[in-house]
């Protein structure tokens, strides 16, 4: 199996397109950071004292809490915010500035959206291109069962995705150190019983991991379409279409119970870290379970079709 993965990895990096994509990712991450820096310099000036800001925010939170018909989960959020804000004033701990090095590192989930696009391209082609170039007959007339070959390809796609995520993260850390000053403040959060400091690196990696969920699901879908229809273009097109329209579909269906069970509702796991949930009443374990079911369905279809297919001219 290791040999097979080595083969797929070698083939992947022998293509110019792979290097081009990796280059694009690096440029995109640098570009994104550069843009943030540019916007920051344009908006600089008029920076208030952080205590004034926190006090304003606390007043707003208090007002909100007095509102008569506040939903229970919103109320909970505001309560937590309130505790954190009060803690800041009490212990004189400044929040992180928007354009600080720490904030940039924690904001790692945007890397995921670039990586989705690139990983989908690889996932869509890794089986389909073998068919379109005719190399599939060289690959399958070997003393190796087909499921092993498909597995090596699937593993390679995910290794590629993980590698891009880590690379993107490394580049963004580098850019964060080069472009942004460290903030004196700290990120605080209410953990249920007390207010604690959030580790910048931990949060950064956690966001990265959550956004990988999207990469994993979308590329598995592309992998399935690619190996079932043997068409590279169809797989890329369909996957990206779904990726971009998914949240719209959820919005349209959000009134109905079924919205809880469609894959788009759960693909973006960062909703649990940012608090902007697409629909109410879903939890992270529930999302993970739904995603697991979809992934299994995608893979079962891929394996059955690939395993049974007669390779003709």
């Amino acid at each position: 199996m290791l040999n097979l993965i080595q083969n797929e990895w070698m083939k992947l990096w022998s293509k110019k397109g792979t290097w081009l994509m990796t280059g694009l990712l690096i440029l995109a991450v640098i570009g994104m950071m550069g843009l943030a820096k540019w916007i920051d310099t344009m908006e600089s000036g008029g920076s208030q004292d952080w205590k004034t800001n926190v006090k304003q925010e606390l007043t707003y939170t208090n007002e909100s809490l007095e509102g008569p018909n506040l939903p229970a989960d919103m109320r909970e959020n505001f309560e937590e915010d309130k505790k954190v804000l009060e803690y800041r004033l009490e212990h004189s701990i400044a929040p992180l500035e928007g354009s600080s090095r720490e904030k940039m590192i924690m904001n790692s989930s945007t890397i995921g959206s670039f990586v989705v696009l690139l990983t989908v391209i690889v996932a869509a082609g890794i089986v389909a291109v073998e068919f379109s170039q005719g190399t599939i007959k060289m690959l399958l007339s070997r003393p190796i069962k087909r499921w092993k070959i498909l597995t090596s390809k699937f593993v390679t796609v995910n290794l590629f995705g993980i590698m891009l995520m880590l690379l993107g993260f490394a580049i963004s850390i580098l850019a964060a150190y080069l472009l942004f000053p460290s903030s004196g403040g700290k990120e605080l959060v209410w953990n249920g019983s007390e207010v604690v400091t959030v580790s910048v690196w931990g949060k950064g990696l956690y966001m990265l991991l959550l956004s990988f969920g999207n990469v994993f699901v979308t590329s598995t879908f592309a992998f399935m379409v690619g190996s079932v229809f043997r068409s590279n273009g169809l797989a890329i097109g369909l996957s990206l279409f779904i990726y971009f329209t998914g949240s719209t579909v959820v919005m349209l269906l959000s009134k109905y119970e079924i919205a809880k069970y469609i894959v788009f509702t759960h693909m973006d796991l960062t909703q649990y870290a940012t608090g902007y949930q697409l629909i109410e009443g879903i939890t992270m374990p529930f999302s993970l379970a739904v995603l697991a079911v979809y992934i299994i369905i995608f893979l079962v279809i891929s394996y059955i079709v690939f395993g049974k297919r007669d390779v003709t001219a």
């Binding site: 083939k11 022998s14 110019k16 170039q133 005719g134 190399t135 007959k137 060289m138 007339s141 001219a313």
Partner: peptide, 9 residues
């Protein structure tokens, strides 16, 4: 099998 299609790249 027929023309040996190798990985051209």
């Amino acid at each position: 099998v027929e023309n040996p299609e190798m990985y051209k790249y």
